[in-house]
Design a protein around this nucleic acid. Structure first.
Length: 273
DNA sequence: CCAGTATCCTGCAGGC
DNA sequence: TGCCTGCAGGATACTG
């Protein structure tokens, strides 16, 4: 469900309320997730700790604490964090509930269980298998300088490369499709068969679409919401994602869809070459 | 090393 | 109405 703009939206919402809050209790039930969720371990470690300013790395959230350590969270496809009063209605598939002093709660809800919530010791961030393979942040530095040479070396479809978190982090199925459409590049085009000039344009479109989506609070297609329950407003600005069969907003041609790298990708056969 | 596919899981929309 | 199929914002363990 969430890509970089949605995770960043969650991070900034948590940043308003989380810092300084002290955990008093951890409840939940251990279930199989992308990594086994160990509620017992969290219940041993977290009570008594205070949260600091939350960080984001790609699509991961890092909730640092004092004493040092971090709660590492990935929302997968359907994951959601809710910051609510203890009396708030209980949703199905709530796997973990952290209770704070004063009765507020942070709840981790994830029906499909593709997400992740695990504890990282202070020195583990540099060795965690999910974190060490991550590529660069698209909003850090001059993406139009470092991304094109990486794409140029590869023969996979550009759509696949944009989704590869080892190449660039944070881009998912929505924003990959949007960036390729904005750049006028066909999603199956190979990295090495694209000029550096066009790759630089693609890199800039990745940055701009992510930046605009963050400004709009992310994209709500089905059920994305901030921890306060608010929706994102970028959906109305989507030009191609999910619009196959409808007219291209640039030329009017009927948008098509194709499975690329196992994911449905909409594109305009006329505007994207 | 690289590219491509299968798989984990639940919910929901659409077809019959 | 009910059943079935396919698809959904992701990552990764496989295979060739």
């Amino acid at each position: 469900m969430p890509e970089l703009p949605e995770v960043e939206t969650v991070r900034s919402a948590l940043a308003l309320e989380l810092p300084g809050r002290r955990v008093t209790a951890v409840a939940g039930r251990s279930v199989s997730m992308r990594r086994p969720l160990d509620v017992e371990a969290l219940a041993t470690i977290l009570p008594g700790r205070r949260f600091l300013q939350p960080r984001r790395r790609g699509k991961f959230l890092l909730l640092d604490t004092d004493p040092p350590g971090s709660l590492l969270i990935h929302l997968g496809m359907s994951g959601r964090l809710m910051l609510v009063d203890s009396a708030a209605a209980h949703r199905p598939h709530t796997h973990v509930t952290l209770t704070f002093e004063g009765g507020r709660e942070l709840r981790f809800v994830d029906p499909r269980r593709f997400g992740l919530m695990t504890w990282l010791e202070p020195d583990a961030e540099g060795t965690d298998p999910s974190l060490i393979t991550l590529g660069r942040e698209p909003l850090d530095g001059a993406i139009d300088e470092w991304l094109p040479p990486m794409l140029k070396m590869r023969r996979a479809p550009l759509k696949t490369l944009l989704l590869d978190q080892r190449v660039v982090v944070g881009v998912g199925n929505i924003y990959a499709a949007e960036a390729l459409w904005r750049a006028g590049i066909h999603p199956t085009r190979q990295g090495r068969r694209t000029s550096l000039g066009r790759l630089a344009r693609l890199a800039r479109e990745v940055r701009s679409v992510l930046t605009e989506a963050i400004e709009q609070g992310g994209t709500t297609i089905r059920d994305f919401a901030t921890p306060d329950g608010d929706s994102g407003y970028f959906a109305v600005r989507l030009q191609v994602y999910g619009r196959q069969g409808q007219p291209c907003k640039a030329c009017g041609a009927t948008l098509r869809a194709k499975t690329i790298g196992g994911r449905t990708t909409a594109f305009c056969i006329n505007c994207q070459t």
